[in-house]
Structures are given as C-alpha cells and as structure tokens.
Nucleic acid binder design. Sequence first.
DNA 1: GATGATTTGTACGTATGTATA
DNA 2: ATATACATACGTACAAATCAT
Lengths: 218, 218
Amino acid sequence: MNEAGLQTRAERLAAEIAEDILSQRLPPGTRLDEQGLALRYGVSRTPVREALRQLRTSGLIDMEPHKGATVARVTAEKLEEMFGAMAEIEATCARLAAIGMTPIERRRLQALHDRMSVMAQQADHAAYIDANTAFHAAIYGGAHNEIIQDIATGLRRRLLPFRQAQFQMPGRLAQSYAEHDAVLTAILRADASAAHTAMLHHVSLVENAFEAFSSTIS
Amino acid sequence: MNEAGLQTRAERLAAEIAEDILSQRLPPGTRLDEQGLALRYGVSRTPVREALRQLRTSGLIDMEPHKGATVARVTAEKLEEMFGAMAEIEATCARLAAIGMTPIERRRLQALHDRMSVMAQQADHAAYIDANTAFHAAIYGGAHNEIIQDIATGLRRRLLPFRQAQFQMPGRLAQSYAEHDAVLTAILRADASAAHTAMLHHVSLVENAFEAFSSTIS
DNA sequence: GATGATTTGTACGTATGTATA
DNA sequence: ATATACATACGTACAAATCAT
C-alpha cells in the first residue's frame, strides 16, 4: 500500500522527514541526531543515516562529516539566489517550450489555462494552486529535456515551503492568471524570446510577492 | 594528508569510484555489487553503500531499490539532452554575466582570453583545456548565483568523459577561441541577449564536435 | 511455479573523531 | 591543555527481497 517508489524504510523515512521539514514541524536549525530520529520514527540508525544522505542532496539539510545534520537554515541571500535560479530555469523552459511544444501539448496547456480562468474568478485558491503546479509542470515537459525538467522540479520542491503563502495575498490569483496569459500567448505564438521574458517576469514577481509577505528570515 | 573535503572513507571511496568510472576502468553497464567493491577497495560494505548513494546523485550510476547499482549507461538521447541542458545553463550564465559582472571580473576574463590566444596559436592543447575550464568557470561565477553555478559545474562534471576528445580535432582550438571571442565581446558590451546567443552557439558546437568524433553510443 | 543462492536492506556493536568541562 | 562525554563513521551479523535454476 505504499506509494510507488518508496520501497525501503530509508526512502519512506526521508519522505517523512522532508514532510516534517517543509511543514515547519522541524524548524530550520534543528539538530538532527541519528539516535533521536531513530527513536522518534521507530527504526534503527542505519536507515536514518541513509535518509539523511538523501535529504542532503535535496538541500533540505546541512551536513558536515563528523558533525551531524541540521535542518538547513536558508539565508535571505541564498533564498534570493534560489528564486533567481528558479526564474532563469523556468524562463529557459518557456523558451524551449515555445520552440518545441507539440500541437497537442499546446492545446492542453491552453485548456488548462482556460480552466484556471474560472478558478481565479471564483477565488478557488486550493484548485488554483494545484492547477498552477500543473501549468508550470506542463511547460517543463514542453521543454523536451528531462535534465532541465529534473532541475526545475527539484528547485521548485526546495522553494515550496517559501511559496505557501503567496496565493493568499489579495488579488494575487488574478495577477498570476494575467501573467500566465502572457506566457501562454508567447508560447502559442512560438515566440521564444517573449516566452522567456514573460516567464522570467512571472516568477520574479512570485519572489517579490514572497518578500512582501515575509519581512525577514533568520 | 588527504585532500580537503574528503574526510571520510565513504567520500574518498566515492571519489575513487567516480575516477574509475570517468576513466572507463569501470565501463558503462558494469554491475557494482557492494561486497565486490568492499573487497576491491579494502573497506566494509557500509562506506561502500554511502559512496554509491552519493554517486547516484551525480548521475554516474543507476540504482534501484533491492536491485543494486550499475555504472550508468548513457543513451544517445540522454547525452543529447545533457549537452542541450548544458548549453542552456551556460547561455543563462553568460546572459547574467553580461548584466552583472563587476569591472574586475570583466578585466580578468579578458586577460584570461588573451592568454588563451597564445595557447591556441601554439596549439598547446593541455594548457588550453585547463584555461578553457577556467574561462567557463569564470562566467559561471560572473552570474553571481551560487545555485546556478552549482548546476553548471555539476553538469560539466557529468559531461567530462564525453568531452575529452573534442580538442584533439584539427582546428578545434582556433574555432573554440573564435567562439569565446564572440562570447567575451558580448559580455564586455553588457549585451545580455548576444552573450546568451553566442554561448548557446559555442556549447552546441561542442556537442556537434563530439557527435562527429564518436559515431554512436551503446 | 517453487526453491535455493546471492545481494541488498536493516540492526546493532565498536572505534574514532569532535566538542565541552 | 587534558580528559571526559558524546555523536558520527565503520564493521559485522541477520532479515528480506530478487533472480536463477
């Protein structure tokens, strides 16, 4: 009954710890000693060690040899860089999508966008958030490059905890929809440069929205 | 006396195995059973397991739960995607560098480029290869975004084994230098769009050079 | 398709390195 | 500065899963 892909204790544990970090149950800076985690999650230290190694890769925790692990404490500068990188990668995806998306992919993107129009008007935040993820994922896929797609989804995952609140800002849904419209139009026109610009603009605004929302970080 | 950063057995082992893979001593498809590696490198299975987990991250090996690890067998399509991603990321770096490089960084890049002129004329392959790496690294740095820099260096590492031969092709040094010149000029002019285009072109040609050299893969 | 051999995943004990008194 | 305490790195043994016969 486990979700596909989480076949070992270590993998399930990594997912669980990641969830606890993203949900702030394990706040930044928290010491993650192996013994304690083993106790907390009811397993031995071995899968804990492997889970920590996996999490290090995703940037969720900091580790140094012989010094153990802590929940990554993201500095404001680092976060800014992450948003910047995200914007650049997404803009690249949009550019490639504008060039290479198949007619079917373009139609599907348009259809999704149309559905999002209704969600935005009805202010259905939950639905819009899901659809928004799908919209961006569709553009990653449209780039037709699995490497770039992996980079994009990885970055998005890392930024997830800092994006939770953005759609709660008044008027953000409508604004997001309008920005998506610019991206979509450029892609459908196969205007690579415009798609790049529009997406860069869109994701950068997400960053601004975040910064406006949370004053400062650690 | 160990190199800085390789403080644990697992890390040294990972570096050693990586070296053996990149040098083709462990050719693609080779089964990497933990017991065998432990025996071969004279350690226990525990550090071997950790080393393999690290290597999976860098894409050098494929792993599936309960099924062990093999040296990654890169398909032609995958390789093409990797070169494509590399080109896009490097082009992004060049664009950002054109916008944001400091005067000092620009001067240093120019100085390096000038030294490479001599190397190209004298057909000093070894020196040019080193300088070429430095040239590209300088542009990654000029992007002023550590995340993107990490992505770029990571991709470059993964592509390293497939780039060994490129500079051996007759006339490739001079061509490379000319392409660098276009990139440099655009960056010095702070012409973001031109820098992007020139770098995309440059790295894409590296891919072509590779494809011309090696007929087919696996 | 069942069974045995092999290999990975997990548990636990020991040793080495780091930090604190 | 030395010693003690503690956490991590490593080694070994057992359990579970895969695949070959």
